[in-house]
Simulated assay, not measured.
Amino acid sequence: MSNTHLFLPSGFIRAPLQNGLGRYVPQLQRITLKFCKNHGGSRGVREFIESDLMNFAKANPGTVVYLKPRRHRSPVMVAEYLNGEREYLSCQEFNRDEVLKWLSYMCTRSGIPVMRFRKYQHTDYPTIQGVWNPFTHQAPEMNLAEYPHETLSKPADVTVTATEQLLEIFKRTQIKDTTDGKSEN
């Protein structure tokens, strides 16, 4: 286990409630691209603005895009979300593909800061069994089998059906009730 989680702020999950139940509401409210018209570090942002900005704006009609040219400053992307959070990202020496990838990343985020999630319960003695998953108790021969496999594809050999088992349980309870009634008389 790494220790990178020690430097992250911790908290509980604060997801936008029921977002996507009726319709999905994008959480990115506005994005501001700050760049220099001359500086070489802003070349990727300028290329993105010239070639891909209109397509991005058409694909994300719920997001306002602002362009802010600044002289002799490194390029910055500022994302503002519906929950009031702001996220700054330096775009120094990015190419236009990286700018597009980071913009799409910002569009899919909820605006909640990256944090280490805490649980509502805590124990001093964690489980020694390990984490369960659906493949925990699978047969080991399934790991090396090539499908379709003759023996693994056959249904289990069942001599008594579930209906017959239920009828048998019902008969036993009736016999038990009748014997209990006779012993009371």
Rank of each mutant, 00 (worst) to 15 (best):
Q27V: 00
G11K: 07
Q18A: 12
P26W: 00
K34C: 15
N83K: 00
R70S: 13
I13S: 13
H39F: 07
Q18Y: 12
K58E: 12
N83D: 11
G62E: 14
G22A: 13
L53A: 08
F12E: 07
L21C: 09
K58G: 02
V25R: 14
N55I: 05
R14M: 11
P75Q: 08
E87F: 05
A15M: 12
Q27D: 03
A15H: 05
C36H: 03
I31F: 01
F48W: 06
D52R: 14
V76L: 15
I31Y: 01
G44M: 07
P75L: 12
Q29D: 15
D52K: 10
F35N: 07
A15Q: 11
N83P: 09
K58N: 10
L17S: 12
R86F: 12
L67Q: 09
S74M: 09
E47D: 13
D52I: 02
A15C: 01
I31D: 01
G44D: 04
K58Q: 08
R43S: 12
G44P: 03
L21I: 15
L82A: 09
P16Q: 02
E80Y: 02
L67K: 04
Y81L: 05
V45R: 00
T32F: 00
I49S: 07
L53N: 04
Y81Q: 01
G41L: 11
R73V: 13
F12P: 01
E85F: 01
R14G: 08
Y88N: 14
G41E: 13
L28T: 01
M77E: 07
L82F: 01
F56L: 08
E85V: 13
F12A: 11
F35D: 02
D52N: 10
R71Q: 14
V76C: 09
M54E: 14
P26C: 07
I49N: 06
S51P: 03
L21N: 09
F48V: 01
K37H: 12
E85D: 09
R46S: 04
K68P: 01
F35I: 08
A57G: 05
P26Q: 04
V45E: 10
K68F: 00
H39D: 13
V76K: 10
G40T: 08
S10R: 15
